[in-house]
Design a protein around this nucleic acid. Structure first.
Lengths: 123, 123
DNA sequence: TAATGAACAGCTTGTTCATAG
DNA sequence: CTATGAACAAGCTGTTCATTA
């Protein structure tokens, strides 16, 4: 059973990083997948980071599986036929715990990078 | 031909990160693979990062292929039978260019993480 | 046994295809 | 056509095995 590879502990994984943002977006405004993707792209475009849609959906599905969020269907516009999937926080405690963990990982990653910048400047 | 996947531009890749350190180590003291690995492990252990030996060798081989370093054989100790592979800078200009690129990537990655920290603190 | 290297396996993620409405 | 999702494929990287001296 328990066959998993021990990660080397380099930088925070993209999937986890995105989950932190999705929780925040869902807490604030219950948007849907593509909209959150667009926000992320806008947000990080100046820094050369542009996530793709599959990664957002995979992250959302993981949040569902973990019982952190729940989802519902809704029409995109009242007079529209288009259905979208919107998300709500299901377990606020778990959500907060995950966000804290993401933050830890982000800070740890930053300190690794900070060390490198200092080391490279020593030449 | 040119079939490559466009990276999303998230954080700097471990391989590249390590190459920056290897160049610095080689510039300073011409150590060999395992020794550089041990130094890296010591250096980043407090931050939970512990690279493995295969990753270091892959990085060294790439630096060889790119013509940035060259290698030579040497006995580990004078009275020893054990041979080690030591590295020297072959093209200082290329080496510097790569280090600059690594530094750029590290800084870009840091700004992504910095943004996240600020965003998460807004709750 | 220490150092190096290659092969293999598993995980992450970018691209493409499919489906619904 | 838009949103969602799944399947597929390409990397990347951790683990294991092989070789050499």
């Amino acid at each position: 059973m328990g066959n998993s590879r021990k990660p080397s502990g380099f930088l925070v994984k993209q999937r986890l990083f995105i989950k932190g943002y999705l929780i925040t977006y869902i807490e604030n405004s219950r948007p849907y997948g593509i909209q959150m993707l667009d926000e992320l792209k806008q947000h990080f475009k100046p820094l050369g980071y542009s996530p793709n849609h599959a990664e957002i959906y995979r992250a959302l599905h993981e949040l569902l599986d973990e019982g952190i969020v729940r989802s519902g269907q809704k029409k995109l516009k009242e007079d529209s036929y288009q259905e979208i999937t919107i998300y709500y926080i299901r377990d606020a405690e778990k959500a907060l715990a995950l966000k804290r963990y993401v933050e830890e990982e982000v800070i740890r990653s930053q300190s690794i990078l900070q060390k490198a910048i200092e080391d490279f400047n020593l030449d």
